[in-house]
């Protein structure tokens, strides 16, 4: 991997106003989420795992915004980085240099990964601050899929694990968006394909569970984690859960295999398509 190429892609990322826009919108997103949970707190009992305290606000804030905000940010960044540069002809300027197409796509992917990691870090810091600012502290607190309450100290590890896993799921979905961006000839097409994939992923668990129930197929419930958004919606909490009733090990294995599967198929696929096509110049 050539670090010069990565740096140029990184700079191009930040040359776009939209990358900055996402960054500056983060405080507003965190504030809106805090407002929502403050209202939500009024209608649920404090013993519930849904009740928001200063300690679990970073995780709750991520649960609320992960599926829409973070996935869409990844989709937009990748579309701008690949399809938009192809449309505007900008991508030719890089291809004049002596890099292979594969190197270029990997540099774009790494730059996207770095930007997303930065977003996750900023979001974590902002929501930790907002949690302390807007919510009461409580020790210990109840979490999803936990038989016993967790202490504040335990929350630090839990939060970091949650953010780490969420980041990995966004990368897995990002590989699908990358494939969409590589095969699409127009930016609306790339965004439409990506959003369509998101909607279908959201719909799949509903259809699967219904088919299972109505058809009496008796298939295992863990198959619903074929959908990456379902992993984001409930899978991460199940993976980190410590309760008799849930099988965290099986869920973790399924999520790992599914995430890797998507990343390999779509990641390698887009790398192949990108290096084989000759329409970029």
């Amino acid at each position: 991997m050539n670090s010069g190429l990565f740096l140029s892609e990184w700079e191009r990322m930040w040359k776009r106003k939209i990358t900055w826009l996402f960054l500056f919108a983060m405080p507003a997103v965190v504030a809106a989420t805090a407002k929502y949970y403050a209202g939500h707190n009024r209608v649920i009992p404090p013993a519930s795992a849904e009740y928001t305290w200063a300690g679990n606000f970073p995780v709750m804030a991520l649960i609320e915004q992960l599926i829409v905000v973070f996935n869409v940010m990844s989709l937009i960044l990748l579309t701008l980085s690949v399809t938009e540069e192809y449309r505007s002809g900008q991508i030719r300027m890089v291809m004049l240099r002596s890099f292979t197409a594969g190197q270029l796509l990997r540099a774009k992917w790494l730059a996207h990964t770095a930007v997303m990691m930065l977003y996750f870090t900023v979001y974590l810091l902002l929501s930790a601050a907002a949690g302390l600012l807007f919510f009461e502290t409580h020790d210990p607190m109840q979490l999803f899929y936990h038989d016993h309450p967790v202490s504040l100290k335990g929350m630090i590890g839990y939060t970091l694990m949650y953010y780490g896993l969420a980041f990995l799921t966004v990368l897995a979905i990002g590989s699908v968006f990358m494939a969409a961006a590589v095969i699409s000839r127009t930016t609306t097409g790339a965004v439409g394909l990506g959003l369509g994939f998101l909607l279908c992923s959201l719909g799949f668990p509903l259809v699967y569970q219904l088919a299972n129930r109505v058809g009496g197929l008796g298939l295992p419930a863990v198959v619903k984690y074929l959908s990456l958004t379902e992993i984001q919606y409930s899978g991460i909490a199940v993976m980190l859960g410590q309760a008799q009733a849930v099988s965290s090990g099986a869920a973790s294995l399924a999520a790992l295999l599914v995430g890797l599967g998507y990343a390999v198929i779509f990641g390698v696929g887009s790398l192949l398509v990108f290096s084989k096509s000759d329409r970029w110049m």
Binding site: I18, A32, V68, V72, I76, T79, L80, E84, T186, T187, T188, V191
Partner: peptide, 19 residues
């Protein structure tokens, strides 16, 4: 000024209108 921005802005408008 751009297709992607317009798309993003439409979704932000539809979601933001709820708030």
């Amino acid at each position: 000024p751009g297709v992607v921005l317009s798309y993003l802005w439409w979704i932000a408008t539809a979601v933001g209108a709820l708030y």
